[in-house]
């Protein structure tokens, strides 16, 4: 179930190419200078030296530019875009450096924290699934405390149902996100079925919230029975 709707794109700046372009220019100039000077000499040792110099220069230049663990140090201000399915919501500037041992581009730790906070804030505002699961998590904790306080069978059932709901949906969403990395995976965007399922979950969780907050009332048994029945109905409907 495609319940995640916030994604990140990293775009490197154009200035990163500057150093390698300068190196290429130097290479071209020195190579042609060497070849032209060899053309106008008559001494064989100079020609041999020129040949060796060419080979060395070319291998140095090629290695420097084609194996990432020997690159020139890369450092630049990448723009990190936080977007959902249709458009970009936020843009952030983050410093990116090249890590030679791991052969990866990494963000600096402060920028990583900034990006993480932005991502979490964006999800807290727009991702309904995230909010519902946090609500279920809060209910799980409340119900565990309630069950520890008084060993009520209905509270046990409510706790079990909330756990089932919570773990099932999180497991499904995690699975879908990983599966979408494979080719030909669907659905790529949330469909109306997802909105409908979220609505069902929301109704069930709200009922459960009411039952928990009114735990001190005398008619709590009825409320819990109704809330449990609603949860079971939602779980029965789940298609995975």
């Amino acid at each position: 179930m495609r319940f995640f709707n916030t994604f990140i794109r990293v775009m490197l700046p154009k200035e990163i190419a500057r150093k390698s372009q300068v190196l290429s220019l130097l290479y071209v100039l020195s190579f042609s200078a060497l070849m032209i000077s060899t053309l106008y000499t008559n001494s064989i040792p100079q020609a041999v030296l020129a040949l060796l110099g060419t080979i060395y220069m070319t291998s140095y230049y090629t290695n420097k530019l084609t194996s990432p663990n020997r690159f020139l140090p890369l450092r630049g201000e990448a723009s990190v875009l936080v977007h959902d399915f249709t458009d970009v919501r936020h843009t952030l500037k983050a410093t990116v450096t090249l890590d030679r041992e791991q052969q990866k581009l990494v963000l600096t730790p402060d920028d990583q924290i900034k990006v993480q906070q932005l991502f979490l804030q964006q999800n807290a505002e727009t991702n309904d699934f995230y909010r519902l699961m946090l609500q279920a998590k809060a209910q799980y904790e409340q119900l565990t405390a309630l069950y520890a306080a008084n060993r009520d069978v209905q509270v046990a059932e409510a706790l079990g149902l909330v756990t089932l709901l919570h773990s099932h949906f999180i497991h499904g969403a995690e699975f879908t996100e990983r599966a979408l990395a494979l080719p030909n995976s669907f659905p790529r965007k949330p469909t109306e079925a997802h909105t409908y399922i979220l609505q069902l979950i929301r109704i069930a969780l709200n009922r459960m919230d009411e039952a928990i907050t009114h735990y001190e009332n005398p008619e709590r048994e009825e409320q819990f029975t109704k809330a449990n029945a609603k949860m079971r109905e939602t779980l029965r409907y789940v298609q995975g």
Partner: peptide
């Protein structure tokens, strides 16, 4: 980021 988000949701 997704792993972080999911671990926040876990009970």
């Amino acid at each position: 980021l997704l792993r972080n988000l999911i671990s926040r949701m876990q009970v």
